[in-house]
Design a protein around this nucleic acid. Structure first.
Lengths: 119, 119
DNA sequence: ATGATAGATTGACGGATGTCGATGTGACGA
DNA sequence: TCGTCACATCGACATCCGTCAATCTATCAT
């Protein structure tokens, strides 16, 4: 796959010009793959409800997911794992319980994700 | 604290309050399903590159996707359809060509999606 | 009309994903 | 020590998804 123009990893720079494009340059393959992985983690209603439960309470125990989500315990574990591997939540094991919270530094992103209305 | 439609910039509003939740309440099933559909459309590197190509150029013909994406014409058509059904792009048929643009009103969302770094 | 072109649709294939029962692994309590 | 509880992992299954060759549809040029 060739890259005719030398647009390797150009960061998003503010263009205040008239008729400025939405983005300065198309993203490269690595960035696209990385972003796709993040959004894939958000592409499931169960995981979105998980995120919103965590975001609303600040901290949620794994056991407290089973009832509101109406999913089995292995399924809940599966989804928390995916969210954690996507870098969106962190698990804090205290005794037999694991408490989940939004990863530090990602609160703004998560809030934006959950509030993304048609605007 | 109500959350207005303030999804302009994903900005880090410091949570100085003690124990302030990220969101007021967990999202309901319908909202979760709707959001999941949107993010599912973004969960593919080919579609993200498409979006970035459109966002960078303002308007892209379907035929101009085949080469930079290194995908067959049916595959390109498949992906444009998914992005359109997700309400992210619109196709403008002029003669034999279809020109794609970011849907009006979704520019901010798309810009945020493509520039979603860890902040 | 005829042929050429841009794009959509169909059908098929392999791989990824969501789900749950069964089982494994630690941690707590009696 | 033994049993229980919380969670992770495994195995299996059905479904969904990305991909392309073949084909169909609509449009343009001659």
């Amino acid at each position: 796959m060739k890259d005719p123009k030398g647009n390797s990893d150009v960061e998003l720079t503010e263009q205040i010009d008239c008729c400025a494009p939405l983005t300065a340059a198309p993203i490269d393959d690595a960035a696209a793959a990385e972003l796709a992985r993040t959004y894939a983690a958000l592409a499931d209603p169960v995981r979105l409800k998980m995120l919103s439960l965590i975001a609303a309470s600040g901290e949620v125990c794994s056991c407290d997911f089973v009832e509101p989500l109406a999913k089995s315990q292995p399924t809940v574990s599966h989804h928390t794992r995916i969210l954690a591997e996507a870098g969106l939540i962190d698990g804090d094991k205290r005794g037999r319980w694991v408490h989940w919270r939004v990863r530090s530094g990602r609160e703004g992103f998560v809030r934006g994700v959950l509030g993304a209305g048609p605007a």
